[in-house]
Each structure stands twice: as structure tokens, then as C-alpha cells.
Nucleic acid binder design. Structure first.
Lengths: 197, 197
DNA sequence: GTCTATATAGCGATAGAC
DNA sequence: GTCTATCGCTATATAGAC
């Protein structure tokens, strides 16, 4: 990798943070530059337009998704439990990129919406061999989408009522994971690692 | 009801349509007025500010939700099947208000986010007595959220690949509904219509 | 590679005629 | 109740100095 300049990464981080904390409308070039500690001109050297900023975010999301797919494969609990568990926002790099991209997509960014569909497709492909059928796959994917959706509606991170109890945590989450893994598990000795159409 | 002026409703419809088709950023006063066939001044007579426009949308969403809760209660298949089935966008009035409000919320509108949480709470309260436990309720609610979320990512209504196969339809949807209703059904003779904490 | 200064356009909202 | 005209602000993007 050509290892990107530090300022570029700082701009990207600032863009992400503003999208997450204040929504798409607040993510102006001015606000992003100020938060990143550079001038508007400095920002525009690295990202020549707002569209390039969005494209940079999608690229970051896709790279982080690749990393996550490797961790998912290696997880001892299995992909379904891993996927559902990691869908409750922990504020790690992947969660942040995902929420930020979601905000952009809802604002009308075509490139962000396409990026979201692409990473979702990758996750679905990785999970498909481990569930019993397409209905089970739909269930797992949609459940995860629902978790991210609810998290993405909580704007004020200091407000514990942001997600308003719709995102289970702790024991509630564990019970949900047990319910879903039981409901979707592929029959023993079917296709634990094979390919499927 | 004092029956609102026609122009007011036309403005609201236009606002909704633009939010759905082009996203929150495109929903400017100019664009809304043009689509509604009134001038900007005319629009601002009915809605004195952009915030009032957003508040009007939330009010419409809440009214449509009340209607839907009545239909849900009366549905012969039961609330869970009804709720999941009606979560795949059919482009009816409720779906449109819900997607439009979602767009606003993701853009950073606090009032829209609060409105969404409120209607979601009403649906959850109506469904709770009909499922086995809180984990089952979480599952149903999150699944529905996931369906709406995916639908809300398909911007171009002419593009059938917008939701990219993640939203099951036809037989796929029926299988999903069967899976979920079986998974969450309350034990026979528990509390089919009682109240619960 | 980063800055300041500025061009240009679009937005929300007001004022006042009809 | 609806219109036109316009103000003041903010946004994206460019030009050019350092």
C-alpha cells in the first residue's frame, strides 16, 4: 500500500465523526476542515470535491469489511452469532464507517448507497453456506440491518435513550443471538464450508 | 377534524416525494414549492419554516400509524405476520411517510428521529402481547426495521435492483413470515390480548 | 502540501403587493 | 391565500501566494 498521508486520514476521520454525531447536513467542507485541523484549501488538496470525500469513505468501509470477513471466518461461535453480535454498535472503526456511510446514503448519495449494497452482498455471501436456506439468510441479514438502523438513529452519544430500548444489550442480546442461531442453523453435515448458488 | 386546505396537503405530498426519490438534501423549499405547484411564498404561508415542514411530516406519520394499528388489530393472520408483511414497501401512504421521515432523521433532524422512535414504540406495544418474550419482540421489530432500511436505500424507483435482492418478495417473503411467526409465537392460551409490563 | 482570498451559486426566510 | 422580489447567509469550489 502507498500509505496515505496523515492529513488525509485526519480529514477522513473528521468527516466520519461529523456524519455520525450531527448527520449528513452538518458535514460541510468547512466543518470537516475545522474538525480535522486543516484549512478548506488543505482539505480540497486531498479530496478535490465533496464526491471524492464520499468515495473515500466508501473505500474505507470496503477495506474494513474485508478485514471483518476474515475475523468472521475465524470466529469460534460461527458467522451468524458473530454477525449479529457485532451489529450492535461498539463504535469501532467498522461500525463508524458503516453508520457514516448510511447517513450519506440516506441523504441521497448514490455512491454511498451502492457501497452499502456491495458490502452487504459480501457479508451475505460469507454467511449463506452456514444457514439452512435463503429465508434464514434473509432473517439474519435483515436483523443486522435493523440493529444498525436503530443505532444510526441515536444522534446524541451522551443520550442513553437515543436508541430507546430497541437495541438489546447484555443478556437481551445473548437471548436474541441464541434465538436466531437456533432458528437458522444449517442441518448437521450439510455444507459447512461449501459453495452454494 | 378542521380539514386542512388542499394546497397544504399538496405541499406535504411534494415534500414526501422529494425526500423519497432524491433524499433529504434535495428537499429544498424551492424544490418542494415547484413540485407542489406553488410559489415559495405560498409554501411558507402554510409552513412558516423548514422545521414546520418536518413537524408536519411527523404528524402525518403518527396519524397514519394510528390507522395502521387498528388494521393490525383486526388482521386475521395476527399482528406479527401483518407487521412483517406490511414492512415490505408497497408505496402506500404509511410506507411513504415512514421512508420520508427516515430520510429526514438520517439527515440530522431531531424531531424526525423522535417521531420515528415514538411510532416504533406504539407498534412494539401492540405486538408485545402476541409474542413469547422480549427476545422474540426484538426479533420482529428489528426484522421490520431491516426491511424498511433496505427499501429506503433504493433511490431510483425504476431500478428493480435498488434493494438488490435483500428484500424478499413473493414466495421468499411468505417463507420468511412463516419462519418468524413460528419462532416468536406466544404459547397457546398465554396472553392473547392481555396487558404486560 | 497547505494556506488565504474570492468567485459563484443556492438556500431559508422576510416584506409587501395583489 | 398566494404571489414576486429581495435580503443575508452559507455552501462548494477555484486561484494563486507561500
Amino acid at each position: 500500500m502507498p500509505r496515505p498521508p496523515l492529513a488525509r486520514e485526519r480529514v477522513m476521520d473528521a468527516y466520519e465523526s461529523i456524519l455520525i454525531d450531527e448527520g449528513g447536513r452538518a458535514a460541510t467542507l468547512d466543518a470537516v476542515a475545522r474538525t480535522a485541523g486543516v484549512s478548506k484549501g488543505g482539505l480540497l488538496y486531498h479530496f478535490a470535491s465533496k464526491d471524492e470525500l464520499a468515495a473515500g469513505l466508501v473505500a474505507r468501509l470496503e477495506a474494513l469489511t474485508d478485514d471483518d470477513l476474515l475475523r468472521m471466518k475465524a470466529d469460534s461461535e460461527g458467522p451468524v452469532a458473530y454477525y449479529v453480535r457485532t451489529s450492535v454498535m461498539e463504535d469501532d472503526a467498522l461500525d463508524r464507517a458503516l453508520i457514516a456511510t448510511t447517513r450519506l446514503a440516506q441523504g441521497g448519495s448514490v455512491i454511498a448507497a451502492a457501497g452499502l449494497r456491495e458490502v452487504r452482498r459480501r457479508w451475505a455471501d460469507a454467511i449463506r453456506p452456514h444457514v439452512r436456506d435463503e429465508a434464514a439468510l434473509d432473517l439474519v441479514m435483515l436483523l443486522s440491518d435493523g440493529l444498525y438502523f436503530n443505532n444510526s438513529l441515536a444522534f446524541d452519544p451522551a443520550d442513553p435513550h437515543g436508541a430507546d430500548g430497541f437495541v438489546p444489550t447484555g443478556e437481551g442480546l445473548e437471548r436474541l443471538i441464541r434465538l436466531v442461531t437456533q432458528m437458522t442453523r444449517a442441518p448437521k453435515g450439510s455444507e459447512p464450508a461449501s459453495s452454494e448458488a
